[in-house]
């Protein structure tokens, strides 16, 4: 088990945003977490990355308890997040954003990895010297994804990578996610776009008002009556 979350609770002041959530991700798996607006998906990822504190419960990553570990160390351990709304370093160039993605990897050759990313996403190469904030939404999402990949994630957390994108771009992002999975990256994908996420996921979890209410294989959730009504509009 690469990631194991047990009974995780998290609060914003008195708002109980995550209620005893449990979830696991195995090495090489693509796991989807779906749920409506405000269900607590982002909170789960923020707590996983250590930028929001857990009130109680436990997060185990590759056998180590990381519940109280500093955010910066979790990145070094390989837990890397593409946050909601991309969160680029807007005034800095695309290439600087990518290099900063490799911030925790003191050694190694970021240059080779940047070249590989440019091959994978040619648009990054074209825009390399432009301030990241001037790119279109879809291009920014690719920069955000590329920046996370520069950290050599062992577990990639994606928070609504398709949000606000035109359908064509959504398809491109989901293609990229599938390609990463094929290449062996373990992924926890958070989406409001439940259909697309469950369709490519090995397993899925459904979260409602801070509680995980369902979990099953992606295919089983897609045909689950409750999921179809609540999230797929069928």
């Amino acid at each position: 088990m690469l990631l194991e979350i047990e009974g995780l609770n998290s609060h914003y002041g008195r708002i109980h945003a995550l209620k005893s959530a449990s979830l696991t991700v195995r090495e090489g798996e693509l796991v989807a977490l779906v749920g409506a607006n405000g269900a607590g998906k982002t909170t789960l990822l923020r707590t996983l990355s250590g930028v929001h504190p857990a009130s109680s419960g436990r997060i185990t990553f590759d056998g180590c308890d990381i519940t109280r570990m500093k955010a910066s160390r979790r990145v070094a351990e390989g837990v890397v997040q593409v946050p909601e709304g991309r969160q680029l370093f807007g005034p800095q160039s695309v290439e600087d954003n990518l290099r900063l993605g490799a911030y925790r990897r003191g050694s190694g050759k970021p240059d080779d990895d940047i070249d590989r990313l440019y091959e994978m996403f040619p648009v990054l190469k074209v825009k390399r010297d432009q301030p990241a904030g001037t790119l279109s939404g879809g291009q920014q999402q690719i920069v955000a994804l590329g920046r996370a990949l520069m950290a050599k994630p062992r577990l990639l957390l994606l928070d609504e990578p398709s949000m606000g994108l035109a359908p064509l771009l959504v398809a491109e992002i989901f293609d990229a996610v599938q390609r990463l999975k094929r290449e062996g990256t373990t992924i926890l994908l958070v989406e409001q776009n439940a259909h697309a996420a469950l369709a490519i996921a090995d397993r899925g979890y459904v979260i409602e008002t801070g509680e995980i209410v369902l979990s099953d294989s992606g295919a089983a959730l897609l045909s689950n009556e409750r999921v179809r009504q609540a999230y797929l509009g069928l």
Binding site: G50, V51, A71
Partner: peptide
């Protein structure tokens, strides 16, 4: 936030 998420302390 993004700085924290790329591992900057």
């Amino acid at each position: 936030l993004a700085a924290q998420l790329v591992g900057i302390d």
